[in-house]
């Protein structure tokens, strides 16, 4: 069971190339998760006690606004990491996350992984480097979208 999970973890882009024993460390905090279409996976303000390594299906990050319905900020697809707020106090979700279609993911227990990272700084550093890269990529993409490229081909 753990071995199977460790293999799945090792195959996810976030943990690509991680040594098997380290993947097993992560897998020790992980379990399989499945959602039907339209399910709320994370709720804004909720306790960030787990995050998800998406394997199948897409999930939208949204904010709901009165009278405007849910506004989609970004869509995450297979290979993405869903949930970042578990990394930083006060461990509370900033956005809603809802499935667009049936979703298969690995759910990772946040407290469990944080404890392992605290206990093993080398592992913790590796984890932070990988999550940092994902965050940087999201920040860059967001900044580029702020330019409204297709609206005005030359943003000034």
């Amino acid at each position: 069971m753990i071995e199977e999970l460790a293999e799945l973890v090792g195959h996810h882009p976030l943990f690509d190339g991680l040594p098997a024993d380290v993947a097993a460390l992560v897998a020790g905090c992980a379990r399989n998760a499945a959602f039907g279409p339209g399910e709320l996976v994370l709720a804004e303000g909720g306790v960030a006690d787990a995050f998800y390594l998406l394997r199948r299906g897409r999930v939208t990050l949204e904010v709901h606004a009165p009278g405007r319905g849910p506004l989609v900020i970004e869509t995450l697809g297979p290979g993405s990491v869903l949930g970042m707020s578990w990394l930083f106090p006060p461990y509370r979700w900033s956005f809603d996350a809802r499935t667009l279609e049936p979703v298969g993911a690995i759910s990772v227990d946040a407290a469990c992984l944080r404890d392992k990272a605290e206990a093993d700084p080398a592992f913790g550093y590796e984890l932070m480097k990988r999550l940092g890269a994902v965050l940087l990529g999201r920040l860059e993409a967001t900044r580029i979208r702020l330019l409204d490229l297709y609206g005005h081909d030359r943003p000034d």
């Binding site: 939208t60 506004l71 989609v72 697809g77």
Partner: peptide, 23 residues
């Protein structure tokens, strides 16, 4: 297909075009 912003009800992707390359 991915768009920068969408009104409620859009079931396609939202994000930068690079985000769909891995798929």
């Amino acid at each position: 297909l991915t768009v920068d912003a969408a009104a409620p009800g859009w079931t396609g992707s939202v994000g930068l075009v690079t985000a769909v390359l891995p798929q």
